[in-house]
Simulated scan of single mutants.
Amino acid sequence: MESKQNTINEVLRQTMHDYLNNLHLIQMNLDMERYDEAKNLIRTYSLKCTQFFDVNNAGLLHTNEWLQTFSLAYNKITLEFETSIQQVGAEKYDEPVKDYLERFVQTIYPLLKGYQEQILKVCILTAEVLEVQVELKGEWSSYTWVDGMFNGLMEVEQEINTNSHIKYKLIARERLE
């Protein structure tokens, strides 16, 4: 499956659509006097913004664009995203990480079974080194993910690889500066 390049207008349109939906959901909870639910939604949306800025500050701008526009290209998969950014300076890993994630999703996407919920979880951690944890749960045709192409920048550590669960880590070989 060829990745479609989104225009700025398409991305802004989707962002505004999501923004309005989120505001309506908060307003609905306030109207129904469900104040705790409204506060939780505000916290959830605030965390999403914080994560966006954290990934940018770490130097992973292209990876962040890919993550933020993921649902436009891959509507059969729900993306869950977490960050723990303690160190910056990951710029040299940006394109390789984005390309690796893209190759992985493009390879498995045609094999997904549409009736099953597919959840891709990506967790970006920066302490002393950059670590990207990737986990996909769902159902797909027989598949083995073994792409280890990083030209020495990172290593791939596979943890789980079955017909319903794939989990691996991308770990930088050098410390972040």
Score class of each variant (00 low, 15 high):
2 E>F: 03
2 E>P: 03
2 E>G: 04
3 S>D: 10
4 K>P: 07
5 Q>M: 09
5 Q>C: 04
8 I>T: 13
8 I>S: 14
10 E>M: 03
11 V>S: 07
12 L>I: 11
12 L>H: 03
15 T>F: 12
16 M>I: 10
20 L>T: 04
21 N>M: 06
22 N>F: 00
25 L>K: 08
26 I>R: 00
28 M>A: 10
28 M>C: 01
30 L>D: 04
30 L>C: 10
33 E>A: 12
33 E>M: 11
34 R>F: 03
34 R>C: 05
39 K>I: 11
39 K>N: 06
40 N>A: 12
41 L>W: 00
42 I>Y: 02
42 I>A: 08
46 S>G: 15
46 S>M: 12
46 S>D: 13
49 C>E: 14
53 F>R: 09
53 F>K: 09
54 D>A: 02
55 V>N: 02
57 N>S: 14
58 A>N: 07
58 A>R: 08
60 L>K: 03
61 L>H: 06
63 T>L: 12
64 N>L: 10
67 L>M: 15
69 T>Q: 14
69 T>N: 15
70 F>Y: 10
72 L>T: 09
75 N>M: 05
77 I>Y: 08
79 L>E: 10
80 E>G: 00
80 E>N: 11
82 E>S: 08
82 E>P: 00
85 I>L: 08
87 Q>T: 13
90 A>E: 05
95 E>S: 06
96 P>F: 01
98 K>T: 02
98 K>F: 05
98 K>P: 00
100 Y>E: 04
104 F>V: 12
104 F>D: 11
104 F>M: 08
105 V>A: 06
105 V>H: 03
106 Q>D: 14
106 Q>I: 01
110 P>G: 03
111 L>K: 15
111 L>D: 09
112 L>C: 05
112 L>N: 04
113 K>T: 07
115 Y>W: 12
119 I>F: 05
120 L>R: 04
121 K>F: 12
122 V>H: 02
122 V>I: 15
123 C>F: 06
125 L>A: 02
125 L>F: 10
125 L>M: 07
127 A>L: 13
130 L>I: 04
131 E>H: 02
131 E>M: 14
133 Q>R: 15
133 Q>C: 09
134 V>R: 02
135 E>T: 11
136 L>K: 06
137 K>F: 03
137 K>Y: 05
138 G>P: 07
142 S>V: 09
142 S>K: 12
144 T>I: 09
145 W>I: 01
147 D>T: 07
147 D>R: 06
148 G>Q: 12
148 G>N: 14
150 F>C: 04
151 N>G: 01
153 L>P: 00
154 M>W: 00
155 E>I: 11
155 E>W: 01
157 E>G: 01
159 E>H: 13
160 I>P: 00
161 N>E: 07
161 N>Y: 00
163 N>S: 13
167 K>D: 07
168 Y>H: 06
168 Y>F: 15
169 K>F: 10
169 K>Q: 13
170 L>D: 02
173 R>D: 07
174 E>P: 04
174 E>A: 12
175 R>G: 01
175 R>W: 03
176 L>G: 02
176 L>C: 06
177 E>Q: 11
177 E>M: 08
